[in-house]
Design a protein around this nucleic acid. Sequence first.
DNA 1: CTTTGTTGTAACCTTTCTTGTTACAACTAT
DNA 2: ATAGTTGTAACAAGAAAGGTTACAACAAAG
Lengths: 148, 148
Amino acid sequence: MQISSRFTIAIHIFSCINTFEGEYKITSYFLASSIQVNPVIIRKLLGQLKEAGLIEVKRGSGGASLAKAPSEINLLDVFNAVESLDDGKLFHFHENPNPDCPVGRSVHPVLDGRLEQIQRAMEKEMQSISLEDIFKDTNKYLEQNSHS
Amino acid sequence: MQISSRFTIAIHIFSCINTFEGEYKITSYFLASSIQVNPVIIRKLLGQLKEAGLIEVKRGSGGASLAKAPSEINLLDVFNAVESLDDGKLFHFHENPNPDCPVGRSVHPVLDGRLEQIQRAMEKEMQSISLEDIFKDTNKYLEQNSHS
DNA sequence: CTTTGTTGTAACCTTTCTTGTTACAACTAT
DNA sequence: ATAGTTGTAACAAGAAAGGTTACAACAAAG
């Protein structure tokens, strides 16, 4: 199964804050129209990102903004904020290997470390990409594709 | 969302073949009792592993065996055999970013490469682990935990 | 050539998760 | 007070995982 679109939507949210902050108020409706999903989906995501200390959201008057510098937020922070992995584990292990079978007994001790190793490789790569990187790429793309 | 247990079950299947080949006939019932899931689940997985050219399964008489040397099969092969990612992509991208919004327009060109980069890191790590490695670890574990 | 054990597959079910939707109380600035 | 928001509850549809029963097709052995 694929990782849910909450991750890419969250990054889209950050990009909108970066590009439109000051110019527009970044409300759930504004974001919903750029991402083209329901505003309530956005609000739930904003809640998760706020919970994780990545953004601030104003009640009543409305509007989202960054809680940290873009260089201080990496894609793993975003991923962990919106993608709740059961027990923090990327891989779902079958629940009841038979302890009366040698293989059933050894499969956890043998595999757990390997699965962690794979997950860490993914997480390390996510960690190496900051929102600053994404924002730079976005700005570059927009410059190149705006003048004539 | 977590990656389905088909992956760890598949590795468990291979370990059983390694440990019990010759001694027992590796049927879906035998595997089901070690893994403690329904035999039909196993048969579907055996079908996927066979389809991918990783194992051979005897109809009628029954029994599964490796189609290649353990050193020739790595965890990415197993993962790809049993985990059908939509379009081969680990991350599900939100479907309809608004092309009339600068951010909506740039989010795909900016992110696609990054997501691929993250997925490749995971795949590379999977590729670096062969069934031979797993089998060695299993044998070592079983030796250490058998003689008093 | 019948029996037995097995695979391959269809059909169905339950749970869980994602995504989408409406509704509305609580809140804040004007 | 009003208007525009957020936060949340409640619900629904769809997909996927995991489970289960049933059975035809098959292969080896008596």
